[in-house]
Simulated assay, not measured.
Amino acid sequence: MARIMQVQDSIVIAAEPLALYEQIADPSQMGRWSPENTGAKVPAPGSPATVGTRFIGTNRRGKARWVTSCTVTEAVPGKRFAFDVTAIGPKTPLLRGRIATWAYTFEPVEEGTRVTESWTDGRSRWPDFLAARFDRFATGGKLFADFQRGNIARTLAALKADAEGGAQHEAPGDTEGDAEDGTQ
Results as ranks from 00 to 15, higher is better:
R60K: 12
P77D: 04
E164R: 01
M30S: 08
K160W: 03
C70L: 04
P127F: 10
L143V: 12
A100H: 04
W119I: 02
D178I: 15
S124I: 10
R96W: 15
I13S: 00
T86Y: 08
D162G: 13
E110M: 07
P17D: 00
G182A: 15
L159T: 03
R136M: 03
D84G: 05
F134V: 15
G173D: 03
G166W: 03
L130K: 04
K79V: 11
V51W: 09
I152Q: 00
V72C: 01
G141P: 10
V109F: 00
G150Q: 09
G173Y: 13
A145E: 08
R154P: 00
G141S: 01
L95P: 10
A87P: 03
R60G: 04
R60S: 13
G122T: 05
S118V: 11
Q23W: 13
L20F: 08
I99F: 10
Q148S: 05
P17A: 00
Q148Y: 11
R98V: 12
D174M: 15
E36T: 12
R125E: 12
W33G: 00
A25V: 06
T53A: 07
K63Y: 15
G177S: 05
R154Y: 06
A163H: 01
T92E: 15
Q8C: 08
D128A: 12
S118Y: 08
S47R: 15
T71V: 15
E16I: 07
G39K: 01
E110R: 09
A161S: 13
R98I: 10
W119G: 00
T113S: 03
G39Q: 04
F55C: 04
R96A: 14
T73E: 01
E170C: 15
H169E: 07
G46F: 08
E110Y: 06
D26S: 02
A145M: 07
G173L: 05
G78T: 04
Y104C: 02
G39C: 06
E170W: 12
I11R: 01
A14M: 07
T86L: 10
G46Y: 02
L95A: 13
P77I: 08
N37T: 13
R80D: 05
E110S: 10
F83G: 02
V42D: 01
D135T: 06
K63R: 14
E16S: 12
F137M: 12
S28P: 02
R98W: 12
G57P: 03
E111K: 12
V76H: 09
A40Q: 04
Q168V: 14
A179L: 11
P17M: 01
R133T: 15
R65T: 15
T113K: 00
W66E: 00
F137Q: 09
N151K: 11
G112C: 04
R80K: 13
D162S: 14
R123K: 09
V7H: 07
C70I: 01
I4K: 09
V51C: 05
Q168I: 14
G62Q: 08
P45C: 02
V109C: 01
T101W: 11
K160D: 02
V67T: 05
T68H: 05
Q6K: 13
R136N: 03
T105I: 04
A103K: 02
I88G: 05
A44Q: 14
A82C: 11
K41S: 11
G141A: 04
T113L: 05
D9P: 06
D9A: 03
S69K: 15
T183Y: 09
E111T: 11
R32D: 05
I88T: 12
Q148F: 05
P48M: 09
A153E: 07
S10I: 03
